[in-house]
């Protein structure tokens, strides 16, 4: 696996303003837009992104509960955003692996909010933990752990 040919890709950008980059990052991702994801907060390796309930995303017709895959997409996007806003400037990232535990069904009709924390970065790998809630903040609906690639900005030649 190479860093330039990463998996589960997210767009990257060089330059200043990690928050600005992160907002652009969400806005520029078609699948995140299709799921109507909204960046709530970002900075220092922590990202918060939410997604509204939508009848098109239902996985269990008898209960109206959102499909686990849509929650995975939220966790993946949020994890990628957390990596990109880590204090060590990162140019872009791709998911290496992501594990999701579904603790309970999200309540139909309620917005789901994910919070991801990039808690460790090496030269090549970023480690992420994430949780997601519906409007009941006391009981998470899902938890995730993932590893992401670290793609650093190309070294600029010294003047």
């Amino acid at each position: 696996m190479t860093e330039t040919e990463g998996m589960g890709q997210h767009p990257g950008a060089e330059g200043d303003g990690k928050v600005r980059i992160a907002r652009q990052f969400i806005a520029a991702i078609p699948f995140s837009g299709a799921l109507d994801m909204r960046l709530e907060n970002i900075g220092d390796g922590i990202a918060v992104i939410s997604m509204p309930w939508n009848a098109a995303l239902v996985g269990d017709p008898k209960t109206g509960v959102i499909h686990g895959g849509a929650v995975s997409a939220l966790m993946d996007t949020c994890g990628g955003a957390a990596v990109m806003c880590h204090p060590e400037a990162l140019a872009g990232t791709a998911t290496i692996d992501l594990r999701i535990d579904y603790m309970r069904a999200a309540t139909p009709g309620q917005r789901i909010t994910a919070r991801a924390h990039c808690y460790h970065v090496t030269r090549s790998v970023a480690f992420v933990r994430a949780e997601a809630w519906d409007e009941d903040r006391a009981r998470p609906v899902a938890a995730a752990t993932g590893a992401f690639t670290v793609e650093r900005p190309a070294e600029r030649p010294k003047p």
Binding site: G8, Q9, H10, I29, G69, A70, S72, D76, A94
Partner: peptide, 10 residues
């Protein structure tokens, strides 16, 4: 490239 979340969903 396809979104990691789209791949996970599939």
């Amino acid at each position: 490239a396809l979104h990691g979340g789209a791949i996970a969903s599939f």
